[in-house]
Nucleic acid binder design. Structure first.
Length: 278
DNA sequence: CTAGGGTTAGCG
DNA sequence: CGCTAACCCTAG
């Protein structure tokens, strides 16, 4: 009587995936208890989370299976949508230790998901900030961006921001003065403001929230999952309005992961490492 | 508390 | 009717 089969909503699904991405698959009770996701999962039990995760896995792998009755591949890793196979049983997420003076965006113990939707505007905000102050350090720039962009700034945005600043300096769009002060580079040839740098083509790979400061392996893995998800979606979602809505949302978020990939790539190349891509 | 198997309600 | 997804039960 009190159980008319409650279907999972988009928010719940998203919260579950976010929870798994954060705490790891298997920590159902922890995810359910986390105030960050509890607002979406309060009506679901830890067992429900596990079951739902299993269903999602079956849905993803099953679709591939349908086109291929014989299974040459045992498939040892988790489903495409879900991610976090290599996470160790104990507390996994490492990036939570280092903290900068620029803590912010509170979040009153869970009010909304930390979707990292923006990204393309950050460079513009950097120039705006420097336009006003002539010279600023990274903390000031960070504060400015936070003030101007309201909530979207990720918790540890300082690291990718630093990478971007360094890149801009390398492109001679900015110049570094003092120990860690940045200012606009006014002289020199400022002809082509956009060298192909700040305008992205936007292919179609979708992306969800991503954690900055993660290992390259993690980032690549996450990206790979997103691609798989995209393939899955485009081949199946030809009728579901809900899926369409989600897809358009992911398209908007594409910019953020692109920027993330650029930052990571920049960091690797500046460290003198070589990337071999098949 | 979690993983896995079993059961039932909806849907095409 | 068969399948999928939400729900339930239980061993470890």
């Amino acid at each position: 009587m009190g159980n008319p089969k409650q279907k999972w909503t988009n928010e719940e699904e998203e919260a579950l995936r976010a929870g798994v991405a954060k705490h790891g698959a298997g920590k159902w009770k922890l995810i359910q208890k986390d105030p960050e996701f509890n607002q979406y999962l309060h009506s679901r039990s830890n067992i429900d989370l596990k079951d739902k995760w299993r269903n999602m896995a079956a849905a993803v792998q099953g679709s591939r299976e349908k086109l291929r009755p014989p299974r040459p591949r045992p498939v040892q890793d988790v489903p495409a949508v879900p991610s976090v196979p290599l996470q160790t049983p104990t507390v996994v997420p490492a990036p939570v230790i280092h903290e900068s003076p620029a803590d912010h965006v509170k979040d009153e113990s869970g009010k909304d998901l930390p979707d990292a939707k923006n990204g393309p505007r950050y460079t513009e905000l950097i120039f705006d900030a420097l336009k006003d102050q002539n010279a600023m350090d990274i903390s000031s720039i960070l504060a400015y961006i936070e003030k101007m962009s309201d909530i979207p700034v990720p918790p540890n945005f300082r690291k990718p921001l630093g990478a971007r600043l360094r890149r801009l300096v390398q492109q001679e769009k900015l110049e570094k003065v003092e120990s860690s002060l940045y200012r606009l580079k006014t002289n020199t040839v400022e002809t082509n403001a956009s060298n192909q740098k700040d305008t992205w083509p936007r292919p179609h790979p979708p992306a969800l929230y991503t954690k900055v400061g993660e290992s390259l392996e993690e980032a690549a893995k996450t990206a790979a999952y997103k691609v798989v998800e995209a393939e899955n979606k485009s081949s199946v979602a030809a009728e579901a309005i809900k899926e369409l809505e989600k897809f358009s949302k992911m398209a908007e978020e594409t910019d953020s992961i692109l920027q993330l990939a650029k930052d990571i790539f920049d960091r690797c190349t500046t460290h003198g490492e070589i990337l071999l891509v098949a």
